[in-house]
Amino acid sequence: MDSARRKVLLGLGTGAIIAATGIANANIIGTVIIDGQRYAMIHDESKCIGCEACVDACKETNNVPDGVTRLEIIRTKVGDSPDAEYSFFRKSCQHCESPSCVQVCPTGASFIDTKTGIVDVNPDRCVGCLYCVAACPYKVRYLDPVTKSVDKCDFCRKTKLAKNELPACVQACPKDALIFGDLNDMSSDIRAQLNQKPTYKYKEYLGTKPKMFRIASNKRGVVS
């Protein structure tokens, strides 16, 4: 074999190895172990009364500093006072199965916990480049002013779930408008609800595969 052909083969071989490792590595980021859990949540907008007990409970349980929040309830007014009606939208981490935040993190600080399917942040690895904050289309990540790392809702993975309890927001809700559970467990409450009621997910068209389901509010709609 002459040297030119050898060079071409060497180049192609190297290229093939690089491509293969690249694809393999890319898959690892998005894959979840089959035996693991895939935690998800339903926010029932038809039951939510906008009391923000969930926001309060989250702040207390997870020691969220002032000025930032892991969870926000966005209120929409329909009609005129005093006959106005309100619908509420929960803005918090969707724990996507194809998360943009994990894909862009240069140090791997933003990761999917393969055992639970929860998207979380390792504050020691985080250098604060804010790439993930920019990448998240739901804008639910924030820079913690105390730790200077990025943080967000983690389904109380390190607080309540660690003690085998439901997340703080789920426990605090007076209307039981939040349902939390494992999608891989066919007998769970969340599966039952998903089978009974029609749900929608936010910004599904972006391909992030969010795991925050929503049951639409039954308030009359707005024609603008």
Partner: peptide, 27 residues
Amino acid sequence: LVIDLSKPLDFWKVLVYQFANPTSVMG
């Protein structure tokens, strides 16, 4: 870039851990 980080002294982590996430364009 290093000065703009919220934890500039941890910049070395971007060098050491750059292969932890192959899909990251910044990495």
